[in-house]
Design a protein around this nucleic acid. Structure first.
Lengths: 217, 217
DNA sequence: TTCTGATAAGGTATTTATACTTACAAATAT
DNA sequence: ATATTTGTAAGTATAAATACCTTATCAGAA
């Protein structure tokens, strides 16, 4: 049984590499290269004149419009097209950056053709393809985006308690009762926290506290 | 040649499950169960009286000290111990939550024994183990800081927009301007949402919206 | 048609929240 | 021993939020 080929496009400014890749993949009976482009802007033009590809192989460093921008544009304008980043860089920054921009996978240019085709097939079917290269980096990325510790903004015990009670439907008067303090004292805490968090309302305070992970819901 | 067994511990409050797992894994010639604990606090105690395990299998929901807290504690106090989350939940939230807390992998309790042992071996050698279950969620997590649009409480488009703008330092008047509506109309939205969420203040509304995951931060 | 529900908006009264100023005792620092 | 800071609390004034009530469209249903 004849399997439908996966339609792809290649965006890379290294002409020789790009054309070689076109040649190489064209020989495969699993993918079909619809077109190739020199950079993001070129790609946008050519998308109008060609059928939409399922997958786009995307380089990162390109003139005029680079891989990050191009990927973001695709996510906004053609969210169904899957982007597979294809680069020589194996550092955290470009990998995480491309994934954040919307790429569903990341392959190295030094990969074997078979692995690249596997990745293309994977991303076409699942809209993402996670390999060894990126899995660890992904994990480290979310683990490192971690708690801006409560020490960063010095809060007294009472201020913290007040802050927690603030994240609720209670009025300040009720909070004052709960903490066995005068509403005026609560008012002092409020003003101090407004200054420390640079906000002008209780809602802003609550949002900031949550963003800084000083309190949990 | 005899291969060194991987020393592990199991933390889970479901006694039968835990003991069964101990039995099951003890029969393996690849892992060695040093001890098991009922919850995080119990684990901390037992860590003092036993050799340090290389890997700890960690449940999430436990009394006294849950999996998130326990994992964080381990990362702070024994950063060399690898935590493999082991839970029945396959939702995004617990998975991302455990990984953020410091777990190096996540396995479902409904996994096969062989897969669990593979994961234990993987995490012992690489300090992380990413499977199909988590890879997609990890990717979506860093790409998608968007709210998971939930239809659970019927909100109109404008109400939802208002709700989002509510999670801020803006006054209602400013929000009215942004939405090109009269402050009175905004007031209608507010009242409608107060009823739907059963709250009496903007802060309560914001908290409820966040808890219901109608809004992201 | 008439009725109804959803949406937008005006009026007004009361309660909370916000802002700024002062005070005073206890703890700390100099 | 005398300032200085810190935590507590009061007074007052204004702005914002909350609560209720009413009106006007408009679209679709009875």
């Amino acid at each position: 049984m004849e399997i439908e080929k996966i339609n792809i496009a290649i965006v890379d400014d290294h002409t020789l590499f790009r054309q070689g890749l076109v040649k190489l993949l064209s020989e495969s009976n699993e993918v079909n290269v619809l077109f190739d482009a020199d950079n993001g802007a070129d790609m946008i033009n050519k998308l109008c004149n060609h059928p939409l590809p399922e997958v786009i192989l995307m380089d990162i460093t390109m003139p005029v419009m680079d891989g990050y921008e191009s990927t973001k544009w695709l996510k906004d304008n053609h969210p169904d097209i899957n982007v597979l980043a294809l680069s020589m860089f194996e550092e955290d920054k470009p990998i995480i950056g491309m994934l954040k921009s919307g790429a569903g996978g990341y392959m190295l240019k030094q990969s074997k053709a078979g692995d690249l085709i596997s990745a293309i097939k994977g991303i076409a079917h699942q809209s993402f393809f996670i390999n060894e290269l990126v899995s660890g980096k992904l994990l480290r990325n979310i683990q490192n985006n971690q708690p801006v510790k409560s020490q960063s903004i010095g809060l007294s015990a009472n201020e913290l308690k007040f802050l927690e009670l603030c994240c609720s439907d209670y009025t300040y008067k009720q909070i004052a009762d709960m903490m066995n303090l005068s509403p005026h004292t609560i008012d002092n805490y409020r003003e101090a926290l407004f200054q420390k968090f640079d906000v002008k309302s209780r809602t802003g305070l609550v949002i900031s506290a949550l963003k800084n992970e000083l309190i949990k819901l």
